[in-house]
Write a protein that binds this DNA or RNA. Structure first.
Lengths: 205, 205
DNA sequence: GGCAGTACTGTACCCGTGGTACAGTTTTTG
DNA sequence: CAAAAACTGTACCACGGGTACAGTACTGCC
C-alpha cells in the first residue's frame, strides 16, 4: 500500500470514529484533519468534498459488513446443516456481536445516510441503496432455503422478511440511541430470531 | 389563541414539513422564516435558538403521536373485547395509517433526534427519551393483558416486545428511506403483527 | 384615549465551517 | 535525476447560526 493510501485510510478511520460518535454534520473537517495529523489542503487532496468522504466510508462499510455476514454464515454453516438452524445460529451470533461492540455500532453509517438523505448527493444515496439491496438478497436466499424445507405458518413475503433483518438492526440502533441503552439492539435481534423460529419451526409436542 | 401563538405554530408547521423532508441540519432558519413569512428576528423572538425549535417540535409530536395511538386503541376496542384481537387490529390500523401518510411519516422526528444526538442539547434528548418510554409503557401494558389470557409460546421479555413496536416503525422508516419505498414501513409492521399472532394465538387445527 | 406590554421588523455584525485557488515543498518512483 | 504524487501554507469567499439593539405596530386594559 502506498503512502497516499495510508493517509487516506487514516483520514477515513478518524472520520468514522467521529461520525459514529457525533453524526456526520457534527463532525467538522477541521476536527478530522487535526486528529488525522494532516492539513486541510491534504484532506481536499484525497477527497473532493465531504460528500466524497461519506461515499468512501459507505463503500468501505459495505465491504466490511459483507465480510461480517459472510463470517457469521460460515460459522453457522460449521455448526449445522439445516438452513433453519443455521439462520437461528446466525441471528444469535449477530446478537452477540452487536452486544460486544463497545460503542460505535456498524450499520449506523447507512442509517445516518438514510436519515440525512438530502444532505448527501446521488452517489452516496446509490451506494446506500446498493448496500441495503445486497443484504436483502443475502437474507432472502437464506429464507428461501428454509421455506423449501419448512413451510411457513403464515403467508409472508420472503423479501419483506429479509428486509426485516436489516430493519430490526436499524430500528434497534435508533432505539438504543434514544434510550441510551446499547443492549436494545441485540434484544430486538433475539425477538426477530424468536419470530423466525415460530414462523418456520415445525410444531413439536 | 393569541396572535403570538399563531405565528409560533406557523413557524413550527413550516419547520416540521421541511425537517421531515430534508432533515434538521439541511433546514436553514432563513428558509423557515421565508416560508413562514416572518423575519429572522421574529424567529428568534419565539425560539431562543434552533435547539428550542427542535424541543418544541418533539414535545408537540409526543402529544400528537399519543393521540394517534389513543385513537387506534379506541377503534380497536370498538371492534373486539379480546386484548390479542385488539392488538392485531391496532397493528393493522397502524400499518394502514403508515401507508396512507403521503410523504412525511410521523415518528421521523424522534429518529432524527436520536441519530443526530450530539447535535441537540440535554432538553431535546430528554424529551425524546420520555416519548420512547411512554410508548414502551403503553404497549407493555397491552402485551401484559394479552399474556394473562394467552401464555406466549416463547419466553420473551414483554418490555422488549413493547419496544419492538417502536423499533419496527423506526427501522421501517430507515429502510423505506434507504430503499426509497414508502411501503416498507407498513410491511414491517405487518410482519410484527404476524409475530404477535404466532407468539400468543392458541394453536388451532 | 392613552399606555404598557407583546409581537414583531430592520440593520448591522461576528464566528465557525465548507470549500476554492494556487504557489511552493517534500516524498516516492520509474 | 526527473516527473509524478502527496502533500503544506496562506489567503480568501459564501453561507448559516446567532447576537445586539433600536425602532415600530398591534392589542388588551384601566
Amino acid at each position: 500500500m502506498s503512502r497516499g493510501s495510508e493517509t487516506r485510510d487514516r483520514i477515513m478511520d478518524v472520520a468514522q470514529d467521529a461520525i459514529l460518535a457525533k453524526g456526520f454534520d457534527a463532525t467538522s473537517i477541521e476536527e478530522i484533519v487535526a486528529n488525522a495529523e494532516i492539513t486541510k489542503s491534504g484532506f481536499f487532496y484525497h477527497f473532493k468534498d465531504k460528500n466524497a468522504l461519506a461515499h468512501a466510508l459507505i463503500e468501505r462499510h459495505i465491504v466490511i459488513e459483507d465480510e461480517i455476514f459472510d463470517d457469521l454464515e460460515a460459522r453457522a454453516k460449521e455448526l449445522s446443516d439445516d438452513p433453519l438452524q443455521r439462520m437461528l445460529i446466525g441471528l444469535k451470533l449477530l446478537a452477540e456481536l452487536l452486544d460486544d461492540i463497545p460503542d460505535g455500532h456498524p450499520g449506523c453509517i447507512v442509517a445516518t445516510a438514510a436519515y440525512q438523505d438530502r444532505l448527501f448527493d446521488k452517489d452516496v444515496r446509490e451506494a446506500n441503496l446498493r448496500a441495503v439491496l445486497g443484504w436483502r438478497q443475502r437474507f432472502k436466499r437464506q429464507f428461501e432455503e428454509i421455506a423449501k424445507l419448512y413451510p411457513p405458518k403464515e403467508d409472508v413475503d420472503l423479501a419483506a422478511l429479509a428486509d426485516m433483518v436489516s430493519s430490526t438492526v436499524e430500528g434497534g440502533l435508533v432505539m438504543s440511541r434514544a434510550l441510551n441503552n446499547p443492549a436494545i439492539t441485540s434484544e430486538q435481534v433475539m425477538l426477530l430470531r424468536s419470530y423466525v423460529k415460530l414462523l418456520f419451526a415445525p410444531r413439536m409436542h
